[in-house]
């Protein structure tokens, strides 16, 4: 939901990277085709990961060349529409809408106005998506209501609110194949848990400044932005344990066309993201600044 789940590009083969980029563009085109401009605006890496997981036995991917607004001058290679892509687009839209709704309920002042605008912007597209996936829509709404109740009560458990968010994401497994559901559900559960806790840690400073609820601050009783070493260690361990459980569930899914990319994400991308969020380098790392080749770590094995 926030773009945390991305591959470790340095370790990818160039063809895998090109395909991944084409899928990213393909999802954008799919969102545009189905839901218009509002759909395109919500695109992020997490939804691309979801599309790859839902791929199942849909076989290889068809590609074509298309123009789009940011890349107007040059036609880019994008994936053609496919059923898993359509499902991922619809579910992404529902998630993005409810996230905006959550923002309306939680924020005040100018931020509330911003959230209201986003919600209004997504409304029509959301209605269409909710009509297609009513069960998923209901599940997401229920979980987010539970979550905001816990957040209002300023829950001191880290696992409880994370559990609600994780369950919300794991209900997306309904779009997968029947025989893969259990493994997919467990994988998405832990990915959701990682996203929620990592996002909480990432927002720690801002939330403390604004007086907002923050699960990490509430769990460890933090009052300023300084995080003691043992707290960091503790968050690292809980996130890495989730990453290992996600990997164990991932291994039980059959191979698909996207396996080289999803394997990279599960074994390298997610641990790398966790490490970067915890040592405060995440923001600079994802800005896409030119990387100095000598400073890139040598890493071909998983960190899990």
């Amino acid at each position: 939901m926030f773009g945390y789940i991305r591959p470790c590009a340095e370790e990818m083969k160039i063809r895998e990277f090109e395909r991944f980029r084409a899928l990213y563009c393909g999802l954008c085109h799919e969102l545009g085709r189905e839901y218009g401009l509002a759909g395109r605006a919500i695109l992020n890496y997490d939804f691309v990961f979801l599309a790859m997981l839902l791929w199942g036995d849909a076989g290889t991917c068809d590609y074509c060349f298309r123009r789009c607004l940011p890349g107007f001058c040059r036609r880019r290679c994008v994936t053609k529409s496919a059923p898993p892509l359509t499902a991922a687009a619809g579910m992404s839209l529902i998630l993005a809408y409810w996230k905006a709704q959550d923002g309306v309920a939680d924020s005040r002042g100018a931020k509330k106005l911003g959230a209201l605008a986003v919600r209004g912007f997504l409304r029509r597209a959301y209605k269409k998506a909710a009509g297609k996936y009513p069960e998923f829509d209901g599940e997401v709404r229920r979980r987010l209501e539970d979550l905001s109740r816990l957040e209002k009560a300023r829950s001191e458990s880290l696992d409880e609110p994370a559990d609600k968010f994780a369950l919300l994401l794991s209900s997306a497994c309904e779009a997968g194949r029947q025989e893969d559901r259990r493994a997919l559900e467990q994988l998405l559960y832990h990915v959701g848990r990682i996203i929620y806790i990592a996002d909480g840690y990432f927002d720690l400073k801002g939330d403390l400044k604004d007086g907002n609820y923050n699960p990490v601050a509430a769990r460890f009783g933090l009052t300023d932005a300084h995080v003691p070493e043992e707290v960091r260690e503790s968050v690292l361990e809980t996130l890495m344990s989730s990453a290992r459980l996600a990997a164990a569930a991932y291994e039980l899914l059959p191979a698909s066309y996207w396996t080289p990319v999803t394997r990279n994400i599960v074994y390298l991308g997610i641990p790398q993201m966790i490490r970067q969020v915890l040592d405060g380098t995440y923001q600079t790392a994802v800005r896409g600044r030119p990387k100095h080749p000598a400073r890139l770590p040598d890493r071909t094995e998983s960190e899990l």
Binding site: S157, R193, S234, E237, S241
Partner: peptide, 12 residues
Amino acid sequence: LYYKKGWLDDAR
């Protein structure tokens, strides 16, 4: 119990 539920922080 918590480990099996995936609540790893409490489990620990």
